[in-house]
Computed example of a mutant assay.
Amino acid sequence: MSIALTFTVAPFGLEPLRSFTLDPVDGADGLFALVGTGTTDSGVTDPRLYLLDAAVHLPDYAPVLADEQADRIGLERAEEAMLLVVANPDAAGTTVNLLAPVVVNARTAVGAQFILEDQDLPIRAELAHS
């Protein structure tokens, strides 16, 4: 089931877009396509990013949002947060960005991509295959 999302600020590289659809990828549990509506400043129309649900693929990943970040998307409780990471597949495998997750308020469908402060997390972490 697709979810219409509104971002408080455009995700990195997708400026100025703030309206997206989060579509589950058939046959791939916890994998989503984030599809933008419109054209980015760099000229890409209806851009697409692949996101992994951290709860499914990275159960030990537990970043901490600053209060200001949680407030920006209206999080009242941690349980409301859907934590997603950008996946970058290439010939050598897949990496994920752990430093700048996409966080969605499941109650309101408002999201944002945050750069985590004071956390030593990689931008390109190898995704382990099970």
Rank of each mutant, 00 (worst) to 15 (best):
A66M: 05
V56L: 07
A78Q: 10
L65M: 04
D90M: 11
Q69L: 00
L52G: 08
I73T: 12
G43E: 13
A91G: 10
Y61A: 02
R72W: 00
V56Q: 01
L51I: 03
L51Q: 05
P63G: 14
D53C: 04
G43T: 11
A66D: 01
P89W: 00
A81S: 04
L83Y: 07
L51K: 02
L51D: 02
A62Y: 10
D53V: 10
A55Y: 03
P63A: 14
D71A: 09
H57V: 12
V85L: 10
L51C: 06
S42V: 07
A78W: 00
L83I: 15
A91M: 12
D60E: 15
E79F: 02
G74M: 14
G43Q: 02
D90Q: 11
L58P: 00
G93M: 13
D60A: 12
Y61G: 09
R77C: 06
A87P: 10
L84D: 08
N88L: 13
T94K: 14
A92T: 12
D90R: 04
Y50V: 06
R48C: 06
R77I: 02
P59D: 15
R48H: 01
E68Q: 14
D46M: 06
L51A: 01
G93R: 15
V85D: 14
E68I: 15
A81F: 00
T45N: 12
A55I: 04
A54W: 00
L75K: 07
S42I: 10
D67W: 04
Y50N: 03
R77L: 03
V86D: 10
V44S: 08
P47H: 01
L51E: 03
A81D: 06
D67Q: 09
P89A: 04
M82D: 07
E76Q: 10
A81G: 02
E79V: 10
A55Q: 13
R77T: 08
G74E: 05
V86K: 03
A91W: 11
S42W: 01
R48L: 09
P63F: 04
D67N: 14
V85K: 04
T95H: 02
R72I: 07
R72C: 04
G93Q: 06
E76T: 14
R48A: 03
G43F: 11
V96K: 15
H57G: 07
T45F: 00
R77K: 02
D46S: 13
S42M: 14
A81I: 09
L49K: 10
A54E: 11
R77G: 05
S42Q: 14
V64D: 12
